[in-house]
Each structure stands twice: as C-alpha cells, then as structure tokens.
C-alpha cells in the first residue's frame, strides 16, 4: 500500500549520476525547479523535458521507478489541473452549466501539470541516485556557512538522515499494525469521515509508541558507538569536488542560462 512513495528511496546501481557529488545534484535540482518556473514557452518546456530525459537516461534507474513517485501526487495533480481548467477566466471553449472550460484555462492547466510532473520526477531522480547519507552530507556542506550564525547544521542533517533511514521501517510497521487491528475487526475502509478519524487511533497510538521505542534504542546504539555530535568527527565519504562535478555544475549553469534566455526572448 505504500509502494507508491519513492521519495527518499535510493535505487542501488552505478551510474554517472550516482557518482556525482551530492552538492551538484542538490544545487542542480534546485536550479531545475526554479528554471521550471522561469520558462513560459513550449520551447522552454521542451528544453526542460530534454534535460530531465537526459538525466533519467544517465541515472540508469528503470523508468518505472522514476515515475512511481507520481502515484503519490496524482490526486493533487488532478485537483490542480481541474481548478485551473475550470476556474481560469478567458475565452470559453465549452461550457457545462456553470462549469466553463476556457482556452487560457487549458493552457494554464497544462503548464501547471507539466511543471508539477517535471518537479516531482526531477526530485525523484535526485533521491533515487543519492543515498540519504550523501544527501544529508551534501546539505550539511551547502548549509555550512550557516554554522557561523549558530544554526545546528550537523544536528539537522543527522536528524534528516535518521528520519530517512526509518521511513521504510515505520511504513512496514504501519502496515503490520493495520493488519493486526483488521484481524480484530477494525475497519479502515469506512467512507464516513468521523468513523475514519476514530479508526486511526488504534493505528496511531501503537505507531507512536513504537517510534519512541526505536528512538530510544537508536540513541543508545549511537552513544555506544561513540557518537557525540559533529565535533571531531571525520568522514568516511568526504565530499571532494572532482572534475566531473565541475562539469556537472557547468551543465546546470548552461541549462539555467538557456532557460533565462528563452524566457527573455519569449519562447
């Protein structure tokens, strides 16, 4: 039932994208998302598509894993599209009673849909090719300057890394508790809202208790392995830029610049 969520799920393989420094991928993903909102014309979207397709090809991750992340946001996507189609004023193409489909609405909805799809797939490609540890290392390094203003950068990244490690475990646990309560006659399929909320109690209470128990165990295990914060800690996989990373930044910069140019010239 949780198969639909790939965010935070690393796909194990070896590819040029896997080998890239996580900072490049993080900056690249950010730049890509911003670029999606810069471009306005179809040429721009085509360029964004081309960029994404190249990245997917470079990632060696099977396409079905890449698009799997879409399942989780399908409903949000449909709602967004519906709102835009029906609620954008402009030249009416068809009308069903009060609902009017306008040309502007269609264009706008298509644009939003493309942006959302590219955005989700783009970030999925990053999380599929970067282990959560690399990801947090990357974030920690990129946020490094914030240490000067006393932001607990190391602690934040460690928290994220642990959260990511335990997401699949807690999901499996949710599934197990749900089944155990169903074996006691619990009904999680009720359509009635109040019923639905009430039925979550037998699921959430055990889940929270389990999460706290795991947190306790894990804290103990980390202390036993000499964890005492970021001070004096070395890295097994220190982030050192290599030639390919500089090249990666170059590609991202070129793509970003191209998007700005396309926006300016109105394509």
């Amino acid at each position: 039932m949780f198969d639909g969520i790939t965010l935070g799920q690393y796909y194990q393989t070896d590819s040029p994208l896997h080998r890239l420094d996580p900072r490049v991928k993080l900056v690249g993903t950010m730049a890509y998302i911003i670029a999606l909102f810069i471009v306005k014309g179809w040429v721009g979207y085509f360029l964004a598509f081309l960029f994404l397709a190249t990245m997917i090809a470079l990632s060696h991750v099977p396409l079905r894993f890449v698009v799997r992340g879409m399942k989780a946001i399908l409903i949000i996507l449909l709602i967004t599209v519906a709102f835009n189609v029906f609620l954008t004023p402009g030249k009416v193409l068809w009308s069903f009673g009060v609902l009017k489909v306008t040309k502007e609405g269609l264009v706008f909805a298509a644009r939003m849909a493309v942006r959302l799809i590219f955005l989700i797939i783009g970030s999925s490609v990053m999380t599929l090719t970067t282990t959560p540890n690399q990801l947090t290392d990357g974030l920690e390094s990129l946020m490094g300057p914030l240490k000067k203003i006393h932001v607990p950068v190391h602690e934040i990244s460690m928290m994220m890394s642990i959260a990511l490690r335990f997401i699949p475990i807690l999901m499996e646990e949710t599934d197990k508790i749900m089944k155990a309560q169903m074996a006691r006659g619990a009904d999680f399929e009720s359509k009635h809202l109040m019923q639905k909320i009430r039925s979550m109690v037998p699921l959430l209470v055990p889940l929270f208790i389990s999460a706290f128990r795991r947190a306790n165990d894990l804290a103990m295990a980390m202390e036993a392995r000499c964890y005492h914060g970021g001070e004096g800690r070395t890295r097994m996989k220190p982030l050192i830029y290599k030639g390919r990373d500089i090249f990666g930044y170059g590609v991202v910069a070129a793509f970003f610049a191209a998007c700005i140019v396309l926006r300016v010239v109105g394509l």
């Binding site: 309560q181 006659g185 109690v201 037998p202």
Partner: peptide
C-alpha cells in the same frame, strides 16, 4: 495473532483494549 502482538495495544486500560475486537 501477529508476531509481537503487544505492539498493537493502544487503549488506556487492558480491559478496554480486549473489548476492541468485540466492539468492532
């Protein structure tokens, strides 16, 4: 009865927890 069934307990007291099934 699943493995580690104690992980499914959730009520405030034991009796209510056992009543969960019959209530359903």
């Amino acid at each position: 009865v699943f493995q580690y069934p104690e992980h499914q307990l959730f009520e405030a007291d034991v009796l209510s927890d056992v009543e969960f099934g019959p209530k359903n």
